[in-house]
Structures are given as C-alpha cells and as structure tokens.
Simulated scan of single mutants.
Amino acid sequence: MVDFDLRSANARLRASNPLIQCITNTVVQQFSANVLLAIGAAPAMLDHDADAAQFTRIASGLLVNFGTATNQQFLAADAAIDAANEDSKPWVLDPVSIGAVDFRTTRIRRAANSSPTAIRGNASEIAALAGVGLGGRGVDSTDEVDAVIPGAVELARSTGSIVAISGPKDAIVAHIDGVDHVARLDGGHSYMPLVIGTGCSLGAVTAAYLVGATTASARFEAVVAAHAHFKVAGDAAATGANGPGSYSVNFLDALHTLTAEQLAGAQVEAGTIEAGAVEASVGEGSQS
C-alpha cells in the first residue's frame, strides 16, 4: 500500500509555482486559469498549432481537454503531447464527452494511447475510454464510480497512466510494480457539479501537482493530492454559500487559503485490488 504525504506534495507545488499549459475548452478557460492561480500555479492557454509544441518545452506541465475542440486545437494537442513526452514532462488527458460523437471519441482514444501521465474524468468518461461503457449524457456522468473501478484498473495497466474517476467519492487507480492500487476520497459539496469548470480545472490542478513527481508512487500521490485539494476546498466553500454563484467565488478563495495541514487531513482511503477480482468484474461488464 502506498503511503501519502499530501503535506509535502502541496509544499512542492507552492515552492515550484509550475507553469501549466492548458489546451482546454473555451467554456472553462478563465475559470481554469483562476483555479491554477489560486492553488499557487501559473496558467497559460496556448492552443495554436503553430506554437503549442514550442511552448510545451517552456511549460512545466500540460493539460489536454477536447471539450470544445477545433481542428487547430487537435493539431496543437498532437504537437504538445509529442513535446511533453520527448521532454518527460507530465501531461493530463481529460476525456470529456468521449462516446458522445465519433470523431471526438477517436481523437481522445488516440491521445490516450500517447502515454498520458494521468487520465482524469467522470465515471462515464472513464468507463467509455476503458471500453466498459458508452459514455454519459454530454458532459454529465450516468455511471457510478464504484462500478467503473475495474475498468479504470485495466486502463491504468494498458496506458501506464494514473487514472482518476471523479464523483461524490473520487477513486484514483495506479498500477505500480505489478500491483493495482486504489485511493478513495470523500468530501466536496453538491454545488460543485453546478459550477461550470470544476471538473475541467481539476485536470489542470492535477497537472500542476504532478510537476516534480519523478517516481510512480510520487505521481500517484500527486494525483491524490490534487483531488484532495479540491475535495477539502469544495467542502469549505459551502460555508456561507447561498447557491452555485456564491459557491464558485468561495471555492476559489478556499483553494487559495487551504493549508498543507488542512490538506493532510483529507479523508483518503487507500488499498490494493486483487487482480482476479478486477478481471472477473471486467469480464462481466463486457458481457452485459
């Protein structure tokens, strides 16, 4: 079982002030930028195919999210992913709306086969990418996190990525040295799904936490820390909020004021998964 030092992960993030390049959807660009600034990172929304790769070599990490993708963004992502892999920089894939339409699905699968450091999505998106589901309703999940964990394990094995499933109780899966690990995180608030950009910006935060994580265990810890940061801040933001509008403002403040000690107090359950149980669950899912 992996032991998590969330306090140190947060300290590394704040000390390095990582520059995160976001090739992301137009709906969430400003919110994602504000979220990155709030946690102590720096945002850059460079998504033109002519200079994306060059900027990736300057940036600390990369997020790829095809939520409102244009042909230019697809080309930019291809170039940026290649540059990130060549320079061994962390990059995160958010498979938003996979399964909704064919071309988007094809391009997301292509990106998933390009060795992302982490893949982060809701339960339906991860299920579709793992081949055990059809996707959700647009950007909304119609699957339960627990039901998708076996598929996420198979996805982690096949891609080498840390796979994170967002939901009321997040699950992060990693295949390290032949062992399948899972961490579960409770927290957050029911207002979070009502604020556009919370999921997409979590992908950017995950990329920021991954900067400087050089081992498989450290990368697993970094992805857990990113999700814990969101869960703890999401819970704190509900204090004084009267609805999604005031909550979104409180959320940015909570992300910014969160201390390493608060983060260390996140509700995290960690364990391992028996290989036979995963394979049996995946087999049952493929027959249904």
Rank of each mutant, 00 (worst) to 15 (best):
I98W: 01
C200P: 11
D94C: 02
R157F: 15
V92I: 10
A216E: 11
A128G: 07
V101I: 12
G136V: 03
A118D: 02
S201Y: 04
D94K: 02
Y191I: 02
S190G: 13
A128K: 08
I165P: 06
A152E: 04
R184P: 01
H189M: 12
N122R: 10
V205W: 08
A218R: 00
A183H: 05
T142Q: 10
N113G: 15
A208T: 01
A225D: 07
L134Q: 10
L134E: 07
G99D: 04
N85V: 00
V92S: 06
A127M: 01
P95R: 08
N113S: 15
D94L: 02
V223C: 08
E144G: 14
A225T: 08
V179C: 03
N113Y: 10
R157H: 15
S166H: 09
G151D: 00
L202D: 12
K89Y: 00
I108G: 04
N113E: 15
A174M: 04
A218D: 00
Y209W: 09
A213E: 00
R110Q: 12
D94Y: 03
K169I: 15
I176P: 14
D143I: 03
D180W: 02
A207T: 05
G138Y: 12
E221C: 05
G133C: 03
G133I: 02
S158G: 11
A84H: 08
L134R: 12
A208N: 00
S217L: 03
D87W: 09
A152Y: 11
V101D: 06
G99H: 05
R107Y: 15
N122M: 11
